[in-house]
């Protein structure tokens, strides 16, 4: 029986690019499926948790489809990759949409680049942060295999995570401020950038994920 890489479908954005990119890099015995079925997610060998759109809608959809518990369960036990909103909603709280409680896997907030307190540092910088920016590795990790430090990945976002535990920071990026662009803890790896849109290095990261045993 083949092992499955499940891309969690909770109605937030286009999952086609993620699944096609994964199909490019999986091993012969792995199968990529897009699923909103709790059992399929629970039985997956590894889980990719993408996301696009607003925090409020993401949380609403996760709850409406009753997927929040199974996603959190997956994040506690198997190789788990969060992408973009799929990273942000792992935090305790987001400042988006006048404040939204998120999944609370990690203590910390999701903050806005447009926040008044950043006005002087962000002056002249466009929001969303859109395009190819550098990611500095903050710790060695199996998912950085064959990816040179400080290479560029594709970002599109207006909010960024601020984990309380600085040990979670696996990568940082400069955009007016220095923000956490990658989180890693045990079996979880989560990126603010889109590996599925980041050409060669993005595919390498997905390939590394598909071969990862979930340990650091």
């Amino acid at each position: 029986m083949s092992s499955t890489v499940v891309v969690v479908d909770y109605g937030m954005g286009n999952l086609r690019s993620v699944s096609k990119a994964l199909e490019h890099v999986v091993s012969a015995n792995q199968r990529v499926i897009i699923s909103s079925d709790a059992d399929e997610i629970a039985n997956a060998e590894r889980v990719v948790f993408p996301g696009q759109g607003a925090a409020r809608d993401c949380m609403k959809q996760l709850k409406a489809l009753q997927l929040d518990a199974v996603v959190l369960q997956a994040a506690s036990e198997k190789p788990f990759l969060g992408i973009c909103m799929g990273m942000q909603v792992l935090m305790a709280h987001s400042e988006e949409n006048q404040g939204i409680d998120c999944m609370n896997l990690y203590a910390g907030n999701v903050c806005a680049f447009a926040d008044e307190s950043l006005r002087s540092t962000m002056q002249g910088l466009k929001i969303p942060h859109m395009g190819w920016n550098r990611v500095l590795h903050k710790q060695p990790h199996p998912l950085w295999h064959a990816i040179p430090d400080n290479n560029r990945f594709y970002f599109v976002h207006s909010y960024y995570v601020t984990p309380e535990d600085k040990m979670l920071m696996a990568g940082t990026t400069d955009y007016g401020i220095n923000f956490t662009s990658v989180i890693a803890s045990k079996n979880v790896f989560a990126t603010q950038f889109h590996p599925e849109k980041s050409a060669h290095d993005g595919l390498q990261l997905l390939k590394n994920f598909c071969r990862w045993n979930g340990q650091v």
Partner: peptide
Amino acid sequence: MSLAKRII
């Protein structure tokens, strides 16, 4: 500034 300008 480390964000690259894009060619499309």
